[in-house]
Amino acid sequence: MRNKFLGVFIAMCCFLAISVPLAAHHGSAGYDMDKQLVMKGTVTDWLWANPHCFLKFDTTDEKGEVAHWAAEVSNPIDMTKRGWTKHTINVGDQVTVTVRPAKNGASVGQLLKVTLPNGQTMIGWNPAVR
């Protein structure tokens, strides 16, 4: 029992040590850090802008209902260092998107990665690379 407690304690310490730097000045408080959604969708816009770039895309469920999503990454300079450009994604692209969704259920999230029509997967939200 004592060992189990210590294990949990260590895990909490490690989490504290790495979690502090993982936020931009807008913060990550609104996102569910324990949840990831994988969705297929059609790109409706890709905004290459400060303070954060973001992707807009539409998904369609089994009943044919369309949901409008938006998912953010970092600013253009940081994204350039990760190999992205303004032309990485284009309107109309069919993509597979992994997001960390909002806690409140809104159709917004942090864009963790996206698989492009050519099969290439781009890593999105990664504040460690600036």
Partner: peptide, 24 residues
């Protein structure tokens, strides 16, 4: 060195699309 400018129109778009829905 790269350009890194905060443009009010872009910031407003970010607020409308990302920050506001996130706050509801």
């Amino acid at each position: 060195t790269m350009e890194m400018i905060c443009a009010p129109s872009e910031a407003e778009e970010y607020k409308k699309t990302m920050a506001t829905p996130l706050s509801k």
